[in-house]
Amino acid sequence: MSDAKTTAGLFDCREAYVATLEALAHEDERIVAVVNDSVGSSKLGKFRSAFPDRMINVGIAEQAMVGVGAGLANGGKIPFVSGASCFLTGRALEQIKADVAYSQANVKLCGISSGIAYGELGPTHHSIEDLAWLRPMANLTVIVPSDPWETSEAIKAAAAFNGPVFIRISRMPVPALERANPTFTIGKAETLREGDDVAIIANGIMVHRALDAAQALAAEGISARVVNMSSLTPLDEQAILDAAATGAVVTVEEHSVKGGLGGAVAEVIATQAPCPMRILGFPGFLPTGSVEFLLERYGLTTDGIADAARGLLAKRAA
């Protein structure tokens, strides 16, 4: 795929999640939803109305929620366990590790309102460590969709996949990406724009910003490849090696610069194809502020991404 663009309008990926889940539930009675008093923020009200006997609300008890999900999976159900990512992964990390990943339970964990979507609520509600916590866990597939279409495809793929999956679902509005031949495969990256001067690897809400940055760089004669690395585990190492062949790589994520997408890409580049690299993300606990304020402050903007690419190219030329 090449020269991907964005369509007009912005979309809440939670809507794509629940619409897909409801459609799948009509086809497969094994599908159930488990929530932590988050029916509203998970947008599961219609699911509850359509399937009142297939919605389990455990209250504000994330550890119990994951345990219930594992029990349902052991009983032959396909549970989609939904809650704010900061609480789902932070409070129930032991249950995710022992009851889901280690036990290879067929549980689908849905981290809602991930990243800095709860900007004004501060560090307690920011979820910028979740990928670093989950990525090392054996058996756990980790997916970070970029737009509503990919969110829907990730939910379908997770339901069909026999094993534990974590899907990071943002509430922050994003444009839909135009794809010439859309195909979603767990473990496969998506090259949205070809380029041979520098590569920008992004996932989640950063993908459309990476595309905008590549467009800005093109106006300066810089050819930037854009890779959507929505599958963080398993990781498409060949796509990373292809990106490294450009000679410079920028990673962009709505996450800590430690242990997430940048860390995963750096592990491959450092051991197999060393080249100049820049990791864009958050350095640590963040101040309280709006989403746009935080993204601007830490350079997670079109200009910030383009500047990082220019800096790498200047370093390479020096």
Rank of each mutant, 00 (worst) to 15 (best):
R30P: 07
V39S: 02
V198R: 11
Q272W: 05
A306Y: 11
P164M: 05
L24Y: 06
M1P: 02
V34G: 02
A132R: 03
A160N: 13
Y118D: 04
S170D: 13
E292T: 14
G90S: 11
M229S: 07
I116N: 06
R14K: 12
A98Q: 06
A157M: 12
N36W: 01
A309E: 08
A309N: 08
L177C: 00
V81P: 09
D28K: 14
D236F: 00
S85A: 15
Q215E: 14
V144G: 01
R91E: 00
V58M: 08
F51T: 08
D3F: 09
V198M: 06
A248G: 14
G67V: 02
W133I: 01
G83N: 13
K188H: 05
A244L: 00
I205S: 09
N36G: 15
A318L: 11
T288C: 15
A270W: 09
W149Y: 10
N181Q: 03
F285V: 11
M229G: 06
V174Q: 01
F293N: 06
G187Q: 11
H126K: 01
A219H: 15
Q95H: 14
T20H: 00
R278N: 06
E237G: 08
N203G: 09
C86P: 00
S223A: 12
G122P: 12
S170E: 02
S114E: 01
E220F: 04
S231M: 05
I96W: 03
E253I: 13
T151D: 02
A16Q: 02
A101C: 01
E129V: 05
I56A: 11
S2K: 15
N139P: 04
P123S: 08
A25P: 04
M55G: 01
V252R: 09
T288Q: 13
G69Y: 07
L192T: 10
G83Q: 10
R193F: 04
N181G: 09
D3K: 06
A239Q: 03
M277F: 03
G263Y: 07
A308I: 12
N139C: 07
D3W: 07
A64R: 10
D212W: 12
L134M: 09
S290W: 10
L44A: 02
I56N: 05
D37W: 13
K108I: 07
N57S: 07
G59A: 05
K188L: 08
M65W: 00
A157T: 14
L235C: 05
V268A: 09
V68T: 15
A273D: 11
L10K: 09
L177V: 11
A180V: 12
